[in-house]
Design a protein around this nucleic acid. Structure first.
Ligand SMILES: [Mn+2]
Ligand SMILES: [Mn+2]
Ligand SMILES: [Zn+2]
Ligand SMILES: [Zn+2]
Lengths: 163, 163
DNA sequence: CTCTAAATGCAACTAACTTGCAATTGCAAT
DNA sequence: ATTGCAATTGCAAGTTAGTTGCATTTAGAG
């Protein structure tokens, strides 16, 4: 780590885009910027509102799609919520190779996998650095005869502020 | 348990409806019937297709809504899937009091809770009698400062037949 | 600086619900 | 068994959230 060189938090993400031969456009940097502002998930609609119609919904849609398929974002859904959420993947340089095109395409290998808890009162989303214990996974495989390839775990509750 | 009396698997569910002062209609019994045929999640659309347009989509919608808010069904969503899934709650007689009206309304306390694993190749759904370990729940509450009221866990994989 | 495949803006379109309202019906009270 | 009526249903219309075709613009390799 050299001293004096300013660290651009966007740099590893832009590198990842270039590596995926995806153009680094103003549009995409703008969307990425929102994700870099804080550890906060966004939806297509919330991003579009936040960006003030400075560009089209379909452009936000395709920016999200590009960032997701390039391995910068991951997607998840919550019961009782209509919209799909996206959150920034930490350490994109270590994440799995990009997968299928288009939103809604199946997510592949879990890069820096984690889960979420959402406040049922104020909607606050908190990221959790936990995962399903290996022991439980084994139990599931034994009990079902399946080989597990994917799992999804979401919590809902009441946040510290709303308690 | 008296001998000779036929056991109707629908009975406890219909009781629950009556207890909630929700009318037991042909429509609702029909939808409930599909859930009783097997431990399989349904969506609004898959149910509507399965019932062969014998009744309207909005009727299926409202039947699901009624069964859900009466505590007979629970709802969940999966990343990469557009539709909302519903699954039958086991032992509805022990489940929590009915909550808010309408689909998409928040789910409350989980009665006789369980989870599923779905085969990514043939769609087979297997019921799992496991749940998130209490220790993990505690860790989540400590790390997030939330009080957990609800959780959703789904597995995907390859079943014994498709392996 | 040129060239071209990739990305964008706009509009049209689809999928998945969701709701208003008039006709019908479950079921409680005769 | 019949009645009364609020709850439920069918139909049509509306909404939300996402998706796509196409003409124009642009990133970035050469
Ligand atoms: Mn996250
Ligand atoms: Mn379950
Ligand atoms: Zn809160
Ligand atoms: Zn299978």
């Amino acid at each position: 780590m050299k001293r004096g060189e300013p660290v651009d938090p966007a740099a590893p993400y832009l590198d990842r885009l270039r590596k995926a031969k995806v153009k680094v456009t103003a549009n995409r940097q703008r969307v990425l910027g929102r994700f870099l502002e804080g550890d906060k998930p966004w939806t297509l609609q919330s991003l579009h509102r936040s960006l003030g119609r400075e560009f089209d919904l379909s452009s936000v849609y395709r920016a999200l799609s590009a960032l997701r398929t390039s391995g910068l974002l991951e997607e998840f859904r919550l019961p009782g919520e209509k919209e799909t959420f996206f959150s920034l993947i930490k350490h994109p340089e270590k994440s799995a190779a990009p997968g299928a095109r288009g939103l809604g395409a199946k997510t592949r290998a879990h890069p820096h996998h984690h889960h979420h808890i959402v406040c049922r009162d104020c909607g606050l989303v908190s990221h959790l650095d936990i995962c399903v214990p290996a022991g439980l996974m084994g139990k599931v495989e034994d009990a079902s005869g399946f080989r597990i390839t994917e799992h999804h775990l979401e919590f809902k509750g009441v946040c510290g502020n709303c308690k």
